[in-house]
Every structure is written in structure tokens, then in C-alpha cells.
Write a protein that binds this DNA or RNA. Structure first.
Lengths: 169, 169
DNA sequence: TAGATCACTATACAAATTGCCCAGCGAAAT
DNA sequence: ATTTCGCTGGGCAATTTGTATAGTGATCTA
């Protein structure tokens, strides 16, 4: 018999079952709906419904292929803080977006600056990329630093684990 | 004597077909092998073989679920440059990894510093997270900046597009 | 308190997909 | 000349998906 006295409804965007499902998919993304239902010990329809709802709510945005840029030849990752001319963010971002090696751009507090993540094939190649960046109109100053290692790779797991462990508030 | 021209075998980690396949999966990650083969106009076995090889080579590491942290309640993203005590990187990273809101850590050039990406539910919550970070032993200084927007979200597409468009080299 | 809802279980069934295998073919490498 | 390798095209059984439907207990609402 399923049923405890769970009184959480639409308040929590992700409840425990959702978290367990997402965690499962995080570990083995290729699992089908059926397999998931078996592992979680719930009916297939439930898993299906949960997934649909997560997508609706915008929590789950898809299953994009994870590529290892290093294995693709882009062994270098660098971060750059970009200082730009006042009020030119849109143009600058457009210019940055046009550079394939620019993998991510954020506008941050501090001085209306931008924060950029980029990759390159080698130091020489990075030089080239950086040159491209500084050539973007309205870019005033660029402070680059190279990633030597990544002690904590991008992750969401701990956040899900917390939901899973903690009864919804 | 290495007759160049088109001797692309094991040199290019990702050839055009690979790129087209990955691009296709980037846009519609849930596609099955069969559907992919239809879209690309090649035999099913070919797609299967390509995928297997990409995984072998370590280029394709999987299809992890993409979660929107914002939709999950973590609407704030912040970056921090962490200055640490000499030779304590391992300990510090361990400490940082123990904080669920810390989503990513890189060791960068500059001063043997760390670069951290973290999320929070609100400004007050960010305060709490930051406090946790500074409480990690051997953390000397913390410079935090909040992400106001993300003009260029994490992407790999342009890199693949380039491979696709350009004949091998 | 009597419905009305909602989430989940449990089944069912046709259609599609997967996993695997095999023979043939052409280009490149030995 | 012979072998190797990648791709094609087909085949087949087993599994999974897409979609429905009915039943049940708990929560919400008038």
C-alpha cells in the first residue's frame, strides 16, 4: 500500500520521488522509463507522469549529450573577466557569442563586467582566442586565467541528494 | 610522403558525420538510434558504431539530465575567487565539495587560487553559502560576484558546427 | 460531511525500437 | 594481391514505448 502522510503538493518544485528519479537518471541517463519504474519501485505511469511534470515546470530541460572537450582536442579551459564600455553589454555579448571557443558568458556584479569561459587547443591557440575576444568592439580590458584542474566538476547531485534525504520541510 | 588530402582516420577525434550526429542529439537528445539514422541518411548500424566509438574515445561521456536550478528554487548563481593558504588546495577543495551549493570548482593560474561557482535560493541564502565557504579551513579570502544574467549559456554547438562545416582541416 | 480531485497502481495492447547477427561492397592500407 | 575497415541493407526476437482504462486511498472544497 502506498501512502504515508505526505502533505506537500505544489509548494515544493521537486519532491523526494522526483529527486530520486533525477538522481537515478543522473547516474544512468540512458535508462528508459520502464527501467526507472522498476528501480524506484513505482508504476511506470508514475515515472512517466513525474518526468512530464518536471519538464512542464521547467526543472528538467532535456538530456543533452555530454561532450568532453578535452577529448575533442580542446584541452585548455580559461576564464576571463571582461571589462566593457558602459551600456554596451548587448553588443559585446553578441560579439563574444560569435566566437566558437567562447562556451559561456555571464554578466556579473562588480562593475557590470562579463565573465567568460572559453576553450582552446593549446596555449598558442588560446592566444588566438584571447585576441579575438579583445578585438570585440567595446571590450576595454581582459583578465584571463587558465584552469589548471577541476577539483569539483559541474554537478547538481548534492542538491538533489538533499531533497531526497530531507522530508519536504 | 604522408599523402595528406583526405587521410582522415584516427587523427581527427570527431569527423563530419560525428559532428552532425552530435549536433542532432544536442537539439533532440531523446532521439533513438533509429531516428538518428533516418535523419542523417545513413544506416542504423553506422549510427550505432559512431556512438560507440565516440564513447570509447571519451568524447561522448553520456546524456545526463539537464536541470534548471532556477526552476528548482536556486535562482541565484554566484562566482567566487578564493584565495587559499599555500599548499592547501586539496583540503580546501574537499571542504568546498562538502557544500551542496558549490556546483563547480577550478584551480586557476593567477595565484594558485580557486574559482568557484555556487547557487543559492536568495540573497540571504547566498550569504549563508558564502559564510560556509569562508569557514572552510585555509580559505584566506573570498571575492564574490553575482551573476545578473547569462547572455551565452553553456554551449558546445559552435565547436561542432565548425567541424561539420569544414572538411577535415 | 458528501462529492470532486488528484496521484499512483495495475493492466492491456499495438506499434516502434533495440540488440545482435550476417553478407556484400568499395576504398584504403599492407 | 590480399587484408582490413567502415558502411549498407536486411532479418528477427525481445523489450520498450505510447496510450488507455479502471480501481483506490487521500486531500481539497463547497
Amino acid at each position: 500500500m502506498p501512502s504515508d502522510q505526505q502533505s506537500e503538493h505544489s509548494d515544493q518544485p521537486v519532491d523526494e520521488l522526483d529527486a530520486r528519479l533525477l538522481l537515478l537518471l543522473t547516474d544512468e541517463p540512458r535508462l528508459g522509463v520502464l527501467e526507472c519504474s522498476r528501480r524506484l519501485g513505482v508504476a511506470r505511469g508514475t515515472v512517466q507522469a513525474r518526468l512530464d511534470r518536471l519538464v512542464e515546470r521547467g526543472v528538467l530541460t532535456g538530456f543533452p549529450p555530454a561532450l568532453d572537450l578535452g577529448a575533442m582536442g580542446y584541452g585548455l579551459t580559461a576564464f576571463a573577466v571582461v571589462e566593457i564600455a558602459q551600456g554596451r553589454r548587448a553588443e559585446v555579448c553578441e560579439g563574444l557569442a560569435a566566437i566558437p571557443e567562447v562556451c559561456e558568458v555571464h554578466a556579473t556584479t562588480g562593475q557590470g563586467d562579463l565573465f567568460v569561459r572559453m576553450v582552446a587547443r593549446s596555449n598558442a591557440d588560446l592566444q588566438r582566442v584571447v585576441d579575438h575576444v579583445v578585438d570585440v568592439p567595446h571590450v576595454r580590458r581582459l583578465s584571463t586565467s587558465i584552469a589548471l584542474s577541476t577539483p569539483v566538476p559541474p554537478r547538481v547531485r548534492p542538491l538533489l541528494e538533499r531533497v531526497k534525504g530531507r522530508p519536504p520541510r
